[in-house]
Amino acid sequence: MINTTTLTADIERLETLLADKLGARRGNLARRAAKAGRRLPKWVRRDLEFLSQCGHIAGHPQLASTVEPAVIARAVERSERHLSAIDVKERRIKTALGIAAGLIVQFVILFAVAVAVMRWRGLI
């Protein structure tokens, strides 16, 4: 049987972590996980969707007995451990460095093409 008070508290804690770490601030847990998209591994998104479904199931006494509390606790623990390990500053730095590296590669290619065209035309 699902304990609705602890499940609600766990879901709220995970929603707060998603908002703080990945910027997903709107919607329920499943919508926030979908919004985070590829920034989360597939198994974390799957666990978050499962927990969101368990939140809906918790309101129905007969359906609530079909889900084992150990499975819910494991999904909460795995998701919370992964979300807590995300470093926001490091993620932003990696994103900025990825964009800068892409721009540098494009400028090098553009420069090489410009030199090749100038050499082909006899300007160099």
Rank of each mutant, 00 (worst) to 15 (best):
residue 4 T to H: 13
residue 81 R to K: 11
residue 71 V to W: 03
residue 96 A to R: 14
residue 18 L to D: 01
residue 49 E to I: 09
residue 61 P to L: 06
residue 97 L to N: 08
residue 31 R to I: 06
residue 8 T to N: 12
residue 100 A to R: 15
residue 49 E to A: 14
residue 81 R to I: 06
residue 56 H to D: 14
residue 5 T to I: 15
residue 41 P to T: 05
residue 13 R to I: 00
residue 1 M to T: 08
residue 116 A to R: 12
residue 30 A to K: 02
residue 55 G to C: 00
residue 72 I to S: 01
residue 22 L to K: 01
residue 118 M to Y: 11
residue 65 S to P: 00
residue 108 V to T: 04
residue 40 L to F: 13
residue 11 I to N: 04
residue 21 K to R: 02
residue 124 I to D: 07
residue 12 E to M: 15
residue 102 G to S: 01
residue 108 V to A: 05
residue 19 A to V: 06
residue 78 R to H: 11
residue 116 A to G: 09
residue 98 G to L: 07
residue 101 A to Q: 13
residue 33 A to Y: 02
residue 1 M to W: 14
residue 33 A to Q: 07
residue 54 C to M: 12
residue 94 K to N: 12
residue 104 I to H: 09
residue 34 A to H: 00
residue 103 L to F: 07
residue 9 A to N: 12
residue 100 A to F: 11
residue 20 D to V: 10
residue 29 L to D: 02
residue 14 L to N: 00
residue 34 A to C: 08
residue 116 A to T: 06
residue 75 A to K: 03
residue 92 R to P: 00
residue 66 T to I: 06
residue 98 G to Q: 08
residue 55 G to E: 06
residue 53 Q to H: 13
residue 78 R to D: 07
residue 58 A to I: 02
residue 6 T to S: 14
residue 14 L to G: 03
residue 82 H to G: 02
residue 54 C to A: 15
residue 100 A to I: 09
residue 53 Q to G: 14
residue 17 L to Y: 01
residue 105 V to C: 03
residue 49 E to Y: 15
residue 114 A to S: 08
residue 38 R to H: 14
residue 106 Q to V: 13
residue 8 T to C: 08
residue 123 L to M: 05
residue 13 R to G: 08
residue 74 R to L: 02
residue 41 P to C: 03
residue 8 T to P: 04
residue 41 P to H: 09
residue 85 A to P: 13
residue 9 A to G: 07
residue 4 T to N: 10
residue 19 A to I: 05
residue 52 S to M: 06
residue 105 V to D: 07
